[in-house]
């Protein structure tokens, strides 16, 4: 429908105008966020102007000093880095095996694993909380997980549910399934080991997949709120998302500092996304649903 001759001849401007308008609408809240962050506290309440009269960095210094934002950055960095690393390995090799190294029952296993992606977070929230508490040998616990606080209120507890996202197994299988098997057959006849076939033949072709998994994992873990809210009880295990909510405490919201903190917290995901966006959006279309 979009390739009809008439459409091809039609001018692009109306279309571009509509899309530009929608883009502006979608980005408007972010522009206000930036504007507020540079507006002096107190002025934000009086009248609205997109460009602050006297831009100030005061809100940023307030944000960085308060709300344990620095500790939160350190914790979120560790948790996200570990989760990105494990997610770029464990689900990827599993997806590869499901696509190219079938074994008895592999199909059933694949569907079982992938269907867990649909389990609501709230079903596993409380059990995971109790499991973190009773994690053996952590936080003063004995082998049976008794006696201490386990992984609660610790960086280890924060990363517990993020290490393997089942969605990534699905994406990986889809991606590898789209690759030719002849490469492997040829290598096998040459006597290459399975590990070598994977690392030398298929993995180098899977960079868009790795990019997709990395970006998904990074944003998913960095942005999560409910699990940290439950598992972190003190400043030492706070995360960036928890830290920004402390600026919005009941009734007395400091919008300037809040927006400054929100910007600081959003910059890393934004950078990861923008640096990868072309491959990311391409990867989405290739790894996505087919047929």
């Amino acid at each position: 429908m979009l390739l009809t001759r008439r459409a091809r001849r039609s001018r692009p401007w109306p279309r571009i105008a509509v899309l530009a308008f929608v883009t502006a609408l979608v980005l408007l809240p972010f522009l206000w966020m930036i504007s507020l962050a540079f507006t002096k506290e107190g002025q934000a309440m009086s009248g609205i102007s997109l460009i602050p009269e006297q831009p100030t960095l005061e809100n940023f210094s307030v944000a960085v000093q308060a709300a344990n934002l620095r500790q939160a950055f350190a914790n979120s960095t560790i948790v996200t880095t570990v989760a990105v690393a494990t997610n770029c390995v464990v689900p990827v090799i599993a997806g590869y095996a499901f696509a190219h190294l079938p074994f008895r029952g592999s199909k059933v296993l694949f569907y079982i694993l992938v269907s867990t992606a649909a389990i609501p977070v709230s079903v596993t929230l409380i059990p995971l909380f109790l499991m973190a508490k009773n994690f053996p040998f952590a936080g003063g616990n004995d082998v049976l997980g008794q006696g201490g606080s386990g992984l609660l209120d610790s960086v280890g507890g924060l990363m517990l549910p993020y290490l393997v996202a089942t969605m990534n197994i699905f994406l990986s299988r889809q991606y590898f399934a789209g690759m030719d098997r002849d490469f492997a057959e040829a290598a096998r006849i040459d006597g290459a080991s399975e590990l070598r076939i994977f690392t030398r033949v298929y993995l180098p072709m899977a960079r868009p997949l790795i990019a997709l998994v990395a970006v998904f994992s990074f944003t998913g873990v960095w942005d999560d709120f409910l699990w940290p809210l439950v598992v972190s009880t003190s400043a030492k295990s706070t995360t960036v998302q928890l830290a920004i909510t402390t600026f919005a405490s009941t009734g007395n919201v400091k919008y300037g500092a809040l927006m400054a903190a929100t910007i600081l917290v959003s910059v890393p995901v934004l950078l990861v996304f923008l640096f990868n966006q072309r491959g990311f959006i391409a990867g989405l279309s290739e790894g996505g649903i087919k047929g």
Binding site: Q71, A74, R207, P268, G279
Partner: peptide, 28 residues
């Protein structure tokens, strides 16, 4: 492959930005 040769640098840049902010925090 395709247009994503800058993948590792991209993730790296993000991680770097993150750790920079964290490092500025000093010993917490």
């Amino acid at each position: 492959m395709r247009r994503v040769r800058n993948v590792p640098t991209g993730v790296l840049a993000g991680c770097l930005a993150v750790s920079l902010v964290a490092a500025c925090g000093g010993d917490t």
